[in-house]
Amino acid sequence: MEKWLEHVEPLTFKGQIAVPYTWWAGETGSLFLMGLRDKETIMGCRCNSCGTVYVPPRRTCAQCFTDTGEWVQLGNKGTVQSYTIVRFSHPLQPVEAPFAYAMIQLDGADVSLVHLIKKDLDKLEKGVRVRACFKEKSERKGHILDIDGFEII
């Protein structure tokens, strides 16, 4: 029955799904994002039970299943734990390839923050020190990309 289909162009239909979601950042996320926007500071939070310092901060510690407790101001510098230089381009990406994603352990944090590195890609390796570069104040809007990227020190 299928054979005839080989001799014609089969029919297709374009989907029309484009759902405009709007996510609240929540109390914890808002304080973190406003810290980026207003003060160029990166805030984490410490679990009162196990002491783990998380960034991005979150209200609960999954390991302890408790509320996290206090806010901690982290350094704007950190150490690269892993990285990849992305060579392909896609509309999802906030910058033109090539660029890098890196897992960065900020000074004072126990977990890594995933972010962008845009230059000196040939100098990337595990353990290199990097610094957060913030966008100009007028361009910051309380967004993870208020940090324009990290640069190798």
Partner: peptide, 9 residues
């Protein structure tokens, strides 16, 4: 969606 998806991962 807020901290990782916007990076394009």
């Amino acid at each position: 969606p807020i901290y990782q998806r916007l990076l394009g991962l």
